[in-house]
Amino acid sequence: MKGREILIEPLGGGGLAAALRVDGRLEDLLIDPPDSDPMPRPEAIYLAKAGRPMKGIGGIILDLGDGASGILRGGKLPEPGRTLIVQVANWVEGGKASPLTDRPLLKGRTAILTPGAPGNNIARSIRDDERLDALSALASEAMEGASDNLGLILRSAAQDADEAEILGEISALRADWENVESKAAQGEPGLLRPAPDSGDQGWRDWFTPGTTITEGKRALAEAGLWEDIAGLLRPEASLPGGAFMYIEPTRALVAVDVNTGRDTSPAATLKANLAAANALPRQLRLRGLGGQITVDFAPLPKAERRKIETALRTALRQDGIDTAISGWTPLGNLELQRKRARRPLSELKSQIA
């Protein structure tokens, strides 16, 4: 199928699966953990109570209620016993405390509300002066009467959205924040605003004008996507020209090994490495992998490293998940540091049909 399509399917364990398909190829994937999963989810907002400081790592453990906990690092830490509003920042491995931030963000498709960061801002990708003026006026109108401590960012999607949609979304986000503050005033640690499910997040982050949305009990199945998803649980990922790479998560890092396959021509190594650099962000995104990524490219001279980095940076710009290229190790591996924005697909096997 040509074009852009979002497919959303309910899951047997609760929650949803959402997939983005572009010109017939799976480009992005979100799968909710089962309802029984107790792990705090990124973007969820809690009222937390400060517990014991962790001086060795510059943080403090916070009680999130119902047996959940997280860790807040950096800056001026709260005194033990104090309550504060926090948001889950990333997924973590089982047994670790969830990383938290005391600067929550309420995200919509066209706008982001920024409690604690006042001021109205517009995405830098919007450069048309006339549209910038119109959006600036719209932001001022939408935030009229808001608290001095409340800010707003208009996202790239605002460029093509109509004013009614933007105003409606900002109004809804402001109402959500008022509800968060009202619940927090009750003083007991606990969930104040749940994380968006995969359907809401997929629509928010993937929808563009002209996108088709298909929802139903077998939306992904009828599109043949569960077979593609099952393939992502295997370490091998094919690359053009017969090359391939193995992507294997461990507890410490994600190891990626690039191989040229049967091609033994002089240009095979560079072609395989460039193909891997182009494909890696998509593979990490679909597999839900983050943290430290170590890539063992097929043997290459140092003179070709810049070409690999350039190709990888270009692919990462289209990825949408914060990833930093840390550099080359003495053994010739390339290291990346990637935000743990997704739950690893390998931990969601029970949700995969």
Score class of each variant (00 low, 15 high):
152 L>C: 10
35 D>Y: 02
232 L>G: 04
44 A>K: 07
268 A>L: 09
330 P>E: 13
21 R>K: 10
334 L>P: 08
129 D>M: 07
5 E>W: 02
31 I>R: 04
73 R>F: 13
304 E>G: 00
123 A>T: 04
231 G>Q: 11
79 E>F: 04
112 I>M: 10
256 V>F: 07
170 I>G: 06
209 P>D: 11
128 D>A: 11
342 R>M: 12
215 E>A: 13
130 E>M: 03
275 A>Q: 03
326 S>G: 00
96 K>W: 02
172 A>S: 15
79 E>L: 12
318 Q>A: 13
85 I>H: 02
46 Y>K: 08
192 L>E: 09
233 L>A: 13
133 D>Q: 14
34 P>Q: 07
83 T>H: 02
223 A>H: 09
111 A>I: 10
240 P>A: 04
313 R>P: 00
154 L>W: 11
228 D>F: 05
26 L>I: 05
101 T>D: 05
272 A>D: 02
26 L>A: 04
270 L>E: 13
270 L>H: 03
113 L>C: 09
197 D>T: 07
7 L>S: 03
194 P>V: 08
314 T>I: 01
319 D>T: 02
285 R>L: 15
221 A>K: 12
267 A>V: 12
259 N>V: 05
284 L>T: 06
155 R>T: 09
304 E>C: 00
259 N>P: 06
298 A>N: 11
291 G>M: 06
316 L>E: 02
69 S>V: 00
95 G>K: 11
118 P>M: 12
272 A>T: 03
141 E>G: 01
352 I>H: 03
310 T>H: 02
330 P>W: 13
24 G>Q: 06
213 I>K: 13
75 G>F: 11
272 A>M: 01
50 A>Q: 08
265 S>T: 14
26 L>N: 05
176 D>H: 06
35 D>A: 15
194 P>D: 07
320 G>D: 02
205 D>L: 12
230 A>R: 15
251 R>C: 00
